[in-house]
Structures are given as structure tokens and as C-alpha cells.
Amino acid sequence: MTPSLRIAGLAFAYPDGYQALFGVNLEIAKGERVALLGPNGAGKTTLVLHMNGLLSGGVGTVEVAGLTVEKQNFPEIRRRVGVVFQDPDDQLFMPTVRDDVAFGPANMGLTGSDLAARVDEALEQVAMSEYADRPPHHLSFGQRRRVAVATVLAMHPEILVLDEPSSNLDPASRRELADILRGLDITLFMVTHDLPYALELCPRSVVLSEGVVVADGPTRDILLNDELMRANRLELPFGFDPRNVPA
């Protein structure tokens, strides 16, 4: 089966000369849930922005479900890759929740009852249906994050990409979001510093450091590899032991 995501030999330097990626290779099968770990400045965000063509111009290729990320494919690529950015206030720019969730599918050409059905379905998936007509800034941070997820689910993406999904969430919102994400039947790629969250949601993790993939394997094995963890400035929260978490 065609993998959801295939990245081959991706290298990229910003116009100011700063090189962020030095040849990244990564393949994610359909339906997999993968966490991307790494210290600040490892190139995680740069990698994410390559996945839907917001950054390009380096070497290497990115394919989403067999379709190459390049200019003439952008509309379809942006449908297939649903990126949820870290700050929901950046993601939710329309006057109401409903309009915001409709923005993506409407850009794809959906109208009328098809569009309404998409919006209802996506809001249902994140348990936010009753807030459809509220302005985004009347919602709590956790609710806004869930609506942000709905805005990309409404486009029926091949792969859901989340940038720091658990950041700034209180423990209850963090767990609610985990329940929602676990319930989705979709390929999931999650950038995070929250290692317990990665362990909880993603059977597989990839460690990015200084622009290359330095480890790729079962999340539990990576978190238990002290040497690897130390070398990449990854640390478990105080008192957290992956061995105590049931597999």
C-alpha cells in the first residue's frame, strides 16, 4: 500500500543561510500514529512546513499518499495534509466556529448542504457541535484547540499533522484531546515535547536532531534509551517511568 507520507533526502536552508534540514528520510504507513521528538531548533517546524509545501526550494522529495509536494499539486496536497498549528488563535481566523471549519472545505469547492454536512461531521468528531455559532475567542483554550483540529478534519485529510497538540492545555483538556485523537481513523504525525503524551498516543517515534533523523523506533524503546535521550536533550518529566505504563 502507498505510504501516507514519504520524505526522501530532504535538505533545506533558509534564505539567510541558516540550514535547518540536512537530508531527512521518513516513511509513515497509512493509519500509523508517529511522534516527532527533538530539542528546540532541531528543525521540527521546518519539516512540518515542508509537508504541505509552505516551505520548499531545498533538495529532496516529499510525497503524500503518492502525490509529490510541488506547486501544481498544492490544492490537493493541502487537502491531504491537515496541519494544526500550535496557537489556535492563528488557526481560527473566521468570525464563528462554523465559518472557520467551513473555510477549508469551501476552498476545495464544497457548497450548500455538502459543506454543512462536512462541518457538522468534523465538529461532531471533536465534540464541539454545540459551539458551532460561537466566535472562537469565546471558547476556552482547550476548546479552541479542538476546533482547530476540526478545521482540518473537515477537509478529510490523508494525514493529520499536529504541532505541539498538548501545549498550554490543562490536564483534563489534554486527556480529552488524547481521547479524541485516539478515536480518529487517520494517519497521525505529532510534533511534541510532551514525551508521556507521545508514549500514550504514538506507538512509533522519530527523533530529529540538528536536521537529521537520529532515531526511529517504538516510542517506549526510545524513551528508555538513556544515552539517546541525553544526547538529544530529551528528558522525561520528574517521576515518570515508561516502564510503569502498561503497553
Binding site: L49, L54, R78, D87, D99, F103, G104, M155
Partner: peptide
Amino acid sequence: ERGERVHLAMLSRGYTGRLPQL
């Protein structure tokens, strides 16, 4: 800078310069 981030988020969802008539 927020404006730039919002613009990226819009492009990610297929924005091509027109807001859809909802």
C-alpha cells in the same frame, strides 16, 4: 508575526486569495 502565522494557517487550508462565500 501573528499575521504571518495566520497566513500560513490559511494557505494550509487551501486559501488562494478569496474568502469563501459561506
